[in-house]
Amino acid sequence: MSALTLASAPEDATALESAEAHHARLAGELAGRVRMLFTAKDRDPSAAEKIHAGLVAFCDRSLLPHAAAEEATLYPAAHRMREARLLIESLIGEHRCLTALVDALRTAPDPASAAADARALQVLFEEHVAKENGLVLPLLAMTPEVSLAALLEDMHQHFATYPSTEDIQEDRHHEEGHDMHDEGIEEPGGCGGVCACGAQQADEPALDVREVPHAIRHATVFGALDAVPAGTAMVLIAHHDPLPLLAQIEQRNPGVFAVEYLERGPEAWRLRFSHR
């Protein structure tokens, strides 16, 4: 069933699609960071510590403010509907669990503990947004007395005013690559002198997106790349030449990553992304 079928107004259909896409981006970025943490915890403890810190900062600036904005806007509107009341109370309880998991992740004593907390956080968040996408958002969208578009606008305003620390803002500044050299992605076949060409290094993490759901595939790559510390690299494995993705990565973080093709099909494309 399409979003247009579920919505009572065209603007609410658009809002429903936008909310689902935002959930996919959040879930994908979280999944990418968690994958990188799991890969690094045994191979490179120093890199794992940086990935751990970046994951906590991502939760502080994205996941937790998103949950708070939902409770201030979407949830009250849905809670007024008798058929959704118990579901919303359950989802609020899940928000408390998400917050507790982030706190546990924040104070995890070692990479292995952090990885376990991160995986639990990922599983709960994916289940949580599935309920919102499948139940809460469609209910709001197809109720004539409710404007989902207006609720999402209020939610965005609430999100913008969510308290943030200077440390979180500084972390985001670095992760978005604004302090990196303004250089372009290199032509395939060269790594810019970052590593030996032609073979993956034994300690380089690999992200196989062939097993990632299509809806969150690009966001998962973005999250994984955000977790790659400067001076290290990640290998991406795809089922086709990811040219559109490369363009998005360069647009998102200009000059931050040098790209080298390690394999060009036919079964898989393998690319190394070296963080300058």
Rank of each mutant, 00 (worst) to 15 (best):
R82G: 11
Q248Y: 09
R82Q: 14
A68G: 09
L6W: 03
L91G: 03
L236P: 03
T5P: 02
R270C: 14
A57P: 01
E166T: 11
T165P: 08
A238T: 13
L6Q: 14
V221K: 06
L86Q: 14
A84S: 15
A130W: 04
G177N: 05
C59R: 01
I185S: 11
E20R: 12
H66W: 03
A53M: 04
R25Y: 12
G255Q: 06
L55T: 15
R119W: 06
A67Q: 08
F159L: 12
A77V: 07
E127S: 10
R25F: 12
M81T: 03
R270P: 10
E20G: 01
Q122L: 14
H66A: 09
Q157W: 11
R35T: 10
E176C: 07
H173Y: 15
V235E: 06
A258P: 00
A130K: 10
Q201W: 02
T232Y: 00
L63V: 15
G28N: 01
P109I: 07
L262E: 00
T14N: 09
A104I: 01
V221Q: 05
E83C: 07
L87F: 02
E29I: 00
H79I: 05
H158C: 11
G265N: 06
M234S: 02
D117Y: 10
H174C: 06
A224L: 04
I216Q: 03
L37Y: 06
D117M: 10
S147L: 04
L87K: 07
Y261F: 12
H95N: 12
A7H: 05
E17H: 07
P244W: 04
A224N: 04
H275C: 06
G134W: 04
A78T: 05
V123A: 13
A13I: 06
R96N: 11
G177Y: 03
G198W: 08
D208S: 05
R33Y: 01
R106L: 00
T99I: 09
R272H: 04
L262D: 01
C59M: 02
S147P: 05
L4R: 14
K131L: 14
A120T: 10
L152H: 05
C59K: 01
H275G: 03
R82L: 14
V212N: 08
P76T: 06
L225V: 01
A27Y: 00
T232P: 00
F222V: 08
L101H: 08
L6G: 11
P163R: 07
I185F: 07
A112W: 09
T232R: 13
S18T: 12
G93I: 00
R217G: 04
D203G: 02
H52T: 09
H23C: 10
H23M: 07
E29T: 10
A114T: 06
V56F: 00
H22W: 07
A31N: 03
A3D: 15
R264P: 00
H214S: 13
P266E: 15
H181Q: 13
P242K: 04
P266W: 08
E126N: 09
A77E: 11
